[in-house]
Amino acid sequence: MTKFRELSRHVLGEGYSKWILLLPSLILLAFFAVPLIALIYRSIGPDFFANTLSRQAFQALKLSLVTSSITTILAVIFGTPMAYLLARGKFKRKAWLELILDLPIVLPPSVAGLALLAAFGRRGLFGAYLNEIGISIPFTTAAVIMAQMFVAAPLHVRSARIGFAHIDKQLEEAAYVEGANQWQLFHEVMIPIAIRALASGAILTWTRALGEFGATILFAGNLEGVTQTMPVAIYIGFERNLGVALALSVLLIFVSVVLLMITKQLDKEEE
């Protein structure tokens, strides 16, 4: 606490002027903290553990963890090479490619859900052909993963791209002089150096996938154990069982806090 005082004195100076910075910050902090505290406060009650341990809550938690983990693995497998190309490759229309990859980050998830339906729905641009060979994607667990992938994978690509871009060019040249080929360079030099940026990107993707709701409910629907992830269960719980919704919300906050703390730690070590 005294350390904090010293620091704030250093940054903000003495007297009333420091409030010019402090007051807006405190109001904003309260704006974020109060609802979260209120949510946790509301959820505490005799039924909290019964709600957390209910079958619906357990199934939703399991489905959320499984789908978001698969999404993260897929995002790493497909996203890392792409991030490398974006950071190191020289080609035309790179700005356009980056724009397409950044778009899902800023789009409302409901737009993502509609877009996925338009592409992979039974009557969709691509889904119609799949349907003819007997594959139907909407309302399946695969649809949940695709929805998460669409909104969350770009976060990994972005983080990994920045990680690769920061690597010294001379290192790359040195590896070539040593006789390394493209794959060796990527696999034995670049990945180990950028590993923290990759990990932090993967965790960001994971937290975003865990929280995915809008695209999921439009594209995958709501069926317990198949497509009802935690955020969907919270939304449906708002209809009937507020207790389960509150308990699940607290659980989701807890998991997200743990994941964010790991990312913070990785970023710190990076510096």
């Binding site: 339906l117 009557r123 909407p138 309302f139 409910i217 629907g221 069926l223 317990e224 449906i236």
Partner: peptide, 20 residues
């Protein structure tokens, strides 16, 4: 045969209209 339990009746109509 249920593939989804929608949150409100209009969602049911939309999903059937879309042919999903």
């Amino acid at each position: 045969n249920i593939v989804s339990n929608e949150e409100n009746v209009k969602q049911v109509v939309t999903k059937v209209q879309l042919g999903e």
